[in-house]
Structures are given as C-alpha cells and as structure tokens.
Design a protein around this nucleic acid. Sequence first.
RNA 1: CGGGAAGUAGCGCAGUUGGCUAGCGUGCAUCGUUCGGGACGAUGAGGUCGCGGGUUCAAAUCCCGCCUUCCCGACCA
Length: 393
Amino acid sequence: MKWSNYFIPTLKEEPIGTEAVSHKLLLRAGLAHMLTSGVYSYLPLGLRVLSNIENVIREEMNKAGANELLLPSLHPMELWKRTGRDETLKDVMYSFEDGRKRSMCLGPTHEEIITDLVSNFVQSYRQLPVVLYQIQTKFRDELRPRFGIVRACEFIMKDAYSFDRDQAGMEKNYQKMYEAYQNIFKRLGLDVVITEADSGAMGGDVSHEFMVPAKIGEDKIMVNGKEEVAIELGHIFQLGTKYSKALGCEFLDENGKKHPIIMGCYGIGVSRVIAAVIEKHNDEKGIIWPKEVAPFDLEIIPLSGDDDAEITGLAQQLYKELTDKGLNVLVDDRNETAGRKFNDADLIGIPVRVVLGKKNLKEGKVEVKRRDGAESILVDKGSAVEAIIKQVV
RNA sequence: CGGGAAGUAGCGCAGUUGGCUAGCGUGCAUCGUUCGGGACGAUGAGGUCGCGGGUUCAAAUCCCGCCUUCCCGACCA
C-alpha cells in the first residue's frame, strides 16, 4: 500500500479532551474519529487493526468448535419481555417504536435472540451440543462513555453461546472457551488476569473475567495481594437454564423427556481490545503494535526528496518482492521531509521500518529498524529482502 | 444521574476590567530554495467567537436559559 493512496490522517498535536494515552494515540495515529460522545468511526488503519483482532478471535473460536453466525441488531421488545430483561436492562437499552408502532430496541447483548433461534431448530439431545458465536455491534445507552472506545455507546463485541444437555457438557465447553480466551489474549500481546466475578444482570452461578491491568481501568482487582485497576476485556458465564426456561429452549432426552438446555455465554469487547493493546504497547513517540495486531508488517521509507530514481526504484522493487512473499507493506511515498516521515512512522507503530537513504545506499546498504528496539541495522541492498523478513518474523 | 472543567479557522491556543477590520502557532493552496528526525522565504484562502434571548451607542467579552464535550463518582464488554 502506498501512503499517498491511503487515508491516514495523523495528528501532530494532542487532541483536546483526551486523557488516556490510548485515547490520544488512537486519534493521533489516524485510527478512529469521534462522531459524538461514545460513537466512533474506524478509519482505514483502525479497521485493519480491528480486523486483525477479529481474525485472531475467529481462529481461536473455530478451533474451540464454535460456529460463526450473524444475528440482527434490531430486536422486537417482545422477546426481551419474556425474560424480564426489558426491565433490568431498561437503562442501557436504545428502545423505540417503529413506523408500524412495534416496540423495538437495538441489541445491547444477544442471549434472548440466540436462545430463540436455537429453540427453533433444536429438539433432540442428538443435536447437542451447539456452540455459536458472532462478532457484531452492540448498542448501550451509556450515561458516561469513557476513554474513547473503552466504554462506548456503540461497540463491537464477540459473543459466543453454548447449548448443552447437561451441566457436565456445559462445563466442558466453558473450559474450552476459557482456554481459547487465554490463547486469544496471549496472541494479542496482552497479559490477562483472570478473576472470578459476579454475574450481574446476566444471571448464572459461575463467571470469570479476563482483565488487563492498566491505568484507564474501570474495575479494581487484586493481583493475587495488591489492588490494581484493570480493563475488563472478556467475561464468560455459566448461565444454566435462565434463558432456555424463559424462552422455551428445550430438548427431548433418550426417554422422550423434555429438559431445558443448559447454556453458557462468552463475551469479548473487541473494539475495547484496541485501546488495551495501545495502552500496553506505546512509548513517548507513539504506538508499538504487537505483530498479530499491526495494521502492516513493515513500512518502507524512501528518502527521495529530489525524486531520486535509484531510491524510488528500490522502494518499488522491495515492495513487490516483500508483498510477493505475503507481507503487508506500507510505503511512505509522500513528498515529505524525513523528519515528518519518521515521526509518523513512530506514531502509527508498524513493527519494522526500512529506510532507503542516499548516504547508506552509496555504500550499498539499507537501514532496518524494529519499532520495539533501539538499534537499527544496516544490511546489503542485495540481501535486504531476507534480512527484512528475518526482522518481521 | 450527582460533582468539577471546557466550547474562538481543519487541529492546538491567545484575546474576556465591553471599544477600531478577532489574533497566534500549525495545517491547507501557489511559487522558489531545501531533503536522515515534524525545513526556510514569499503570497494567499479559511471565522454563524457552541446556540437562543437580554442589557448597551457598542457584546467573543456582561446577564439569563439551553446544547455539546471531557474528567471524578455510581453502574457495565
């Protein structure tokens, strides 16, 4: 990708009304833009990061045996009345009457919807277990949105639901999800602290939260004697039969006897993960993306203010060869000064930077530098591709 | 929803004891010189001073009401 063809509106100055480091960098690096309090647009670079996070989650969910689907955001209130959550979640629900005078809401979560769906198709123990998940926008009327995308009125969540015939089966799926979550956060470069938690409005007996200690946390946890604030990124619940009973989601056993399905649900605040990753991976110059999250694998910076044909040509050649090897490459081909390119590169935090400059090229060398390391290395132009790949991997 | 702070050019800010054509930095446009850490010069475009009302010869500035945003608290991925 050429920078000149890509929309990366970086900001030189700190945006007003930002406190958290991750919030400042989210906006300065051109990842997102606020439409109104608690509502954000994801710009091309931010969308790449979001997609990377989603894909890590997808891989681990699929590995754990869950199937992806997509549920609607627009719900009839009728379904929510059947579990009584039209009342318990009243304050956070965006609800309204539509043109046909139907009472509707925008989904703040999806237990009711998925349970209703499964009840339509599952009748027998032979069809169980079923584990489904989606990655979708949730709507919550937050009175106080916070720290940019950390607590927003519209945010992206991965929510999975398991349906089993008995407690043992549900606990098995719960354990699989627990392990999948550990893998996900590890791959995303986050050290999570797992705590037993209160199930709150979700219901059920057992639940665990996946927390990342960070300054902008909204929850207080004990890290195993000291109190720390942390961001809640994931929460898994053993729901039991609360929703299946209320919505008639039942199956027949071997003896033709009817039972409510035993459920579990498993959420990750996907958009919130971006903030957590930035919060944990930055320095005074900008973001330092972990490999799996980074919007590009590497950035090539040709310093060819005078339209130097050798530098421009080498940039094109490296771009092609590295792209052919399957890497995502960003080339800062803008007609900007070196200082500006370097500062923007540090800000957007691509893991590896390759600088093509006159002085080094005279010696037949190009510079390769990792964003997370201080020392740059000089490599022969001829063997640059191999040397660069070594740094990326 | 309680407490605090703030709204002036795309962005960051100054101006607020009422007074001339509302200013600075940055960004943007054009031209020239630059080109390894946010370069320099010249010219230029860009404003319902958050909104509405009031006081006054005169309001960005004073008064009243409202809106919006951020931070702390209570509540949730």
